[in-house]
Amino acid sequence: MMMTMNRTVIAGVSAAVGLAVVGGAAFAQTSARARSNVSDQPIMVGADGGERTNTGFALRGRAEVTQGQNRLRADSIVGTNAEGQNISTVTATGNVYYVTPNETIRGDRAVYTVSSATIVVTGDVILTQGKNVLTGGRLSYNIDTGQTDMAAGGNGRIQGVFYPQGSN
Rank of each mutant, 00 (worst) to 15 (best):
111 V>Q: 06
149 D>F: 12
85 Q>L: 06
81 N>P: 04
123 G>V: 03
141 Y>I: 05
137 G>D: 09
123 G>F: 03
110 A>W: 01
133 V>F: 07
97 Y>R: 11
129 Q>T: 11
158 I>E: 05
106 R>L: 11
81 N>G: 05
103 E>R: 09
91 T>C: 01
97 Y>A: 08
104 T>K: 14
138 R>Y: 06
158 I>P: 00
78 V>L: 09
140 S>A: 14
166 G>M: 04
84 G>S: 05
121 V>G: 07
151 A>W: 15
77 I>S: 02
138 R>G: 05
110 A>V: 03
124 D>F: 11
145 T>N: 07
147 Q>E: 14
86 N>W: 00
92 A>Y: 03
161 V>I: 14
146 G>Q: 10
113 T>H: 02
168 N>E: 06
142 N>A: 11
93 T>V: 08
116 S>L: 05
97 Y>N: 07
133 V>I: 14
133 V>A: 09
158 I>L: 12
87 I>V: 15
125 V>L: 13
109 R>I: 03
104 T>I: 12
168 N>Q: 15
83 E>W: 00
158 I>N: 12
159 Q>V: 13
163 Y>R: 14
148 T>F: 11
105 I>C: 06
79 G>E: 05
89 T>Q: 11
83 E>H: 01
162 F>M: 13
115 S>T: 04
99 V>I: 11
133 V>Y: 05
127 L>D: 01
153 G>D: 13
168 N>S: 15
85 Q>A: 09
133 V>R: 15
168 N>L: 14
109 R>L: 07
162 F>G: 09
158 I>W: 08
97 Y>C: 00
87 I>G: 03
159 Q>K: 14
106 R>P: 00
121 V>W: 06
166 G>R: 04
89 T>Y: 05
149 D>C: 11
137 G>L: 10
134 L>Y: 10
116 S>N: 05
146 G>W: 08
162 F>S: 10
136 G>V: 09
92 A>G: 04
132 N>A: 14
161 V>A: 13
103 E>S: 07
94 G>F: 01
123 G>W: 03
147 Q>M: 14
162 F>D: 06
126 I>E: 14
118 T>V: 13
120 V>I: 10
77 I>L: 04
120 V>Q: 06
115 S>W: 00
140 S>P: 01
158 I>M: 12
154 G>F: 11
120 V>Y: 00
114 V>S: 02
138 R>L: 12
150 M>H: 09
144 D>Y: 05
107 G>Y: 07
132 N>S: 15
107 G>E: 05
112 Y>T: 02
76 S>E: 07
97 Y>V: 08
76 S>I: 01
102 N>G: 07
84 G>R: 04
111 V>I: 12
92 A>M: 03
102 N>P: 00
166 G>D: 00
163 Y>S: 14
168 N>C: 09
151 A>Y: 15
136 G>M: 09
150 M>P: 02
165 Q>S: 08
112 Y>M: 02
104 T>P: 00
76 S>L: 04
86 N>I: 00
93 T>N: 08
78 V>M: 07
99 V>W: 00
121 V>L: 13
138 R>E: 11
123 G>N: 04
166 G>V: 03
133 V>G: 04
109 R>N: 05
76 S>N: 07
122 T>E: 02
82 A>T: 02
162 F>V: 13
166 G>L: 05
